[in-house]
Design a protein around this nucleic acid. Structure first.
Lengths: 134, 134
DNA sequence: TTCGGATATTCGATTATTCGAATACAATAG
DNA sequence: CTATTGTATTCGAATAATCGAATATCCGAA
């Protein structure tokens, strides 16, 4: 489990709340302060502020102070845009047959075997000790 | 808060755990059964099974039964691939000055104003009534 | 049929997330 | 200064996520 994986999971956690997604969507249209968002979202001021804290911590938003107001904006707009696009997309869900899977596993096993024999001259017992149902 | 936003947040929640990300990464290389993953991940069998349950519920993986084994595979491989790429990417974090933000808000306000005056005859109720800080 | 290996589920304890209420803080006007 | 408005933080309760241990199930072999 690498550090990058942990970081990626944390980033995704910041995204994975409906109110936070809604905030990000609003900010795509332009910078807004908390009061603006209060009118646009079904959430109270404190709660919006809390979610903004999470987004700020994840470095997805930042703010510029304008008098008493804090104008929030996306500080990684492309990441946010691509993420919102991605989760909105609907890829057809594929169903694979046991035979396809089997073929895939064999192909993978063969590739591994080749890699092993290329390095060492000894054809070692590979990763999958599965018997092949033919 | 739309239904799609809720669905998107749920999907993201399924992604947002390091072990689940690691599972998805492993499955990118090819189908695997739980025992295979046990060797590759720092997690116990029951826990991996639990995470696979979450991923299955999110329609990110499915399995094909092969005897006593269940061969798991990605059932939306492109979504997974793009997601893993996206969270791995590092976009530079931008910092915007109050002046830029101000300009942006004015531009947005102007666009809204124009939209309103253009529709003047059709009272399609709905937009915001925010005052613009000048 | 029983056995053993592979996987799933249930249970309970621990920790994390979420929300509203209340409060604190910060900037500006008067 | 005080009052007001905008925003953040703290606190506590409710809910949800997470994990390991134990157990259940499912399948193929003997």
């Amino acid at each position: 489990m690498t550090i990058e994986t942990q970081a990626a999971a944390e980033l995704l956690k910041a995204f994975s709340h409906p109110t936070r997604l809604a905030i990000l969507k609003e900010l795509q249209a332009g910078p807004k302060c908390v009061t603006d968002m209060e009118e646009l979202l079904p959430a109270r001021q404190a709660n919006i502020s809390q979610h903004l804290g999470v987004l700020r911590h994840a470095k997805l938003v930042d703010y510029a102070q304008d008098g008493a107001l804090r104008c929030y904006y996306l500080c990684r707009p492309n990441l946010v845009e691509d993420m919102l696009k991605l989760v909105g997309r609907d890829e057809p869900i594929i169903k694979r047959s046991p035979e396809e899977i089997q073929a895939d596993k064999e192909r993978l096993a063969k590739a591994m075997m080749q890699q092993v024999t290329a390095k060492e001259k000894k054809p070692t017992e590979g990763a999958s000790r599965r018997k092949v149902t033919q």
